[in-house]
């Protein structure tokens, strides 16, 4: 199972490092990273493997949301099925 972590906001130093750090602590393996621009805002999208997660998914999501709040960024953690459902037939 995979989750999609999306970071949206103003580009600042250390975003990738801090998000990666939390993923590593929770045993979420980052498999892909991409960057986009959404309405003048920086958007980083990470695909992470959550099969071996050492905490409940909701806790990972909450930790990342908290990090986002501290860095003035929006960080969303969503199970990949939502995107597969909505955008694939």
């Amino acid at each position: 199972m995979k989750a999609v972590i999306t970071v949206i906001g103003k580009d600042t130093v250390g975003i990738l490092a801090k998000v990666s750090n939390i993923c590593a602590e929770c045993d979420a393996n980052i498999t892909e990273v991409t960057q986009s621009v959404l309405q003048d805002l920086f958007a980083m999208i990470m695909l992470v493997d959550i099969d071996k997660l050492n905490i409940p998914f909701v806790e990972l999501s909450q930790r990342l949301t908290k990090l986002g709040d501290e860095m003035n960024l929006k960080i969303l953690t969503m199970h990949e099925d939502i995107f597969n459902s909505m955008h694939k037939i």
Partner: peptide, 13 residues
Amino acid sequence: LNIINSHDILETI
């Protein structure tokens, strides 16, 4: 991302 299109992700969000 080879599995999910980043445009689709941002559209959903």
